[in-house]
Design a protein around this nucleic acid. Structure first.
Lengths: 332, 332
DNA sequence: TTGTACGCGTTATCAA
DNA sequence: TTGATAACGCGTACAA
């Protein structure tokens, strides 16, 4: 079933049928009704390939998600999906590995699928600096700020990672902790880890009686958290009383490790996480954590993208975070 | 950059260029080299829209995932993605709501994107009975069996849900539990819940001294598990000593609820989950659960789909499960 | 308000 | 082994 058949069946010409299908003006009400009746009855749909070929672009928005088993991203994708559905934009979901180059992926996507815009869930500055200039369509980077990159077609929405980490560590210090271990990602490679680490350093600098006794770098996973905590504990001597982890999954891994060493959280060691995953509220103990506003990040990001698609200038938005104080920290 | 430019640049005609690009025979080695050199240098890529338009189909495989915040499905999608990448099939990921009709969605997909095959992650028999006959391409249903539906182009890969639930409840009974509550989904609407419920019933039937003191139906989420457990506990009197939940998220919600009531797991109440989520191994207590082989389900499902795309007959495979005995069950 | 004709980038058929 | 040419289904000037 093509618009040719539709033309034949309705007695109108191809042009009229096409105009009806695209809600264009200059069509008689009668023609519209006649044609739409046949469309609905036969369940006709335009051929996307032909349409895109003709228009030299697709009508879709692409999303590039770094890391598949990332509950926060999954959450954001869900929101984005709901919103774009309302706007009528088909979504092109692309999951890539943590260490793949998201900008290269975007370039390929532009050539192959020609999306109207791209949403990056996660990304590293270096990749953008290297290749982003070849991308011509509006893009938005989520969870990292792209303000310093200065591209004309790149907006960003992010949490203030340094401030959030500062807040988490300050909370531990305020509760009387002085020997605090930190578990996070590779400060060389991961921008997010770098920023959060910076926040930690600032917090310790302000309170000289407290110190970061160790910084353990690992993958962002339950197992990564477990193994990193293991190294902290086996390193003995400096007996930490608290740990700040740069992700809730790390916190959960770390807590499990602490329990396996015969200690308890928060009685023996306090733990603060980062992200605000749902599971944290159902964990034992309920996780004290930095809660990121995933919904707001997703909504704002999409809005910036749609705005940019309308020709507006890029923006760089910081969304607020909140320290969610539950049960995994004890006052000394 | 199109194959027209390529023809002009190489001095060959459109036909020859197309043949080279599609690795067809009857091309001189010289022509192949000349053209490929330009392709590589310029980073040329075929226009997918034009190609699909001409061939009246796409080269992609569609995946319809019911429920976005489902860690098990996310896991399976990850495996599928890795495997299809190796085979060179682009993946069309479609996340839909729990209660949307996956077969309707598939029909629309067939019209719009014309995939080579469809993988269903989750689905209910009723929807397939109603509309699946209109779908002409090979499909595979994962996590539910489609054997009884008898479609010529529908394979399936599933865990034996009834047997697994039977195994879980039998384990509790074997540990001396006699008053056992069960938390799951709506037996009327959810086929999976129905099958698992059936397994429970059989287990209780075999051990008359044990009984299902309550069946609480709820959504498959942390909160759902919490609320259902709340109802069980507030219903007092029949003092359960164990709970079987039809999902690990339910188990975690239930355990949190038990703790909030001042009791402990497994000291006061034992809990068995279902799925084998990673977080269960890092929970406190480590979750005793029915472990589903997500990797194997995904791999088998994709293999069946590829086979069917080659013209082979549909198959219905049951993959084994395992009872993972960790810490959330106590022997009475 | 409606219809005609062309081109989007590709594959495939046929003739050279 | 190669080249010319006709589709594929659609949008859109332009003409009627």
């Amino acid at each position: 079933m093509t618009i040719k058949d539709l033309a034949r069946l309705s007695g109108y010409s191809l042009g009229t049928v096409s105009r009806v299908l695209n809600n264009q003006p200059n069509v008689s009400e009668k023609a519209r009704e006649t044609i739409m009746a046949i469309v609905n009855e036969a369940g006709f749909e335009l051929n996307t390939n032909a349409k895109n070929l003709k228009q030299q672009k697709s009508t879709s928005i692409a999303v590039i998600i770094k890391g598949r088993n990332n509950e926060m991203f999954a959450d954001m994708v869900e929101h984005i999906q709901t919103l774009t559905e309302a706007h009528g934009y088909p979504l092109l979901l692309n999951y890539i590995d943590e260490d793949e180059n998201e900008v290269r992926c975007a370039l390929q996507l532009c050539r192959e699928k020609k999306p109207l815009g791209i949403l990056f869930l996660g990304g590293v500055s270096e990749n953008f600096e290297a290749d982003f200039s070849s991308i011509g369509i509006p893009c938005v980077l989520l969870t990292n700020s792209a303000a310093h990159l200065g591209f004309e077609n790149l907006s960003s929405v992010a949490t203030d990672d340094a401030a959030a980490a500062y807040c988490a560590v300050s909370h531990l210090i305020a509760q009387g902790h002085e020997k605090i271990a930190v578990i996070g990602g590779d400060v060389e490679k991961s921008e997010i880890s770098r920023l959060r680490h910076k926040g930690c350093v600032r917090a310790f600098a302000e309170e000289p009686h407290a110190a970061m006794t160790a910084y353990e770098s690992t993958r962002f996973s339950f197992r990564g958290g477990y193994e990193a905590m293991n190294r902290v504990l086996e390193d003995g001597g400096k007996a930490v009383t608290a740990v700040f982890t740069m992700a809730d999954v790390l916190a959960i891994g770390a807590i499990r490790c602490i329990c396996d060493h015969g200690m308890r959280v928060p009685e023996d060691i306090s733990v603060v996480g980062f992200d605000g995953l749902t599971v944290g509220q159902y964990y034992t103990p309920k996780l004290t954590t930095i809660r990121q506003q995933t919904k707001q990040i997703a909504e704002t990001g999409l809005r910036l993208l749609l705005d940019a698609m309308e020709g507006e200038a890029p923006q760089h938005v910081i969304v607020p975070f909140a320290l969610s104080v539950l049960e995994s920290v004890r006052k000394l």
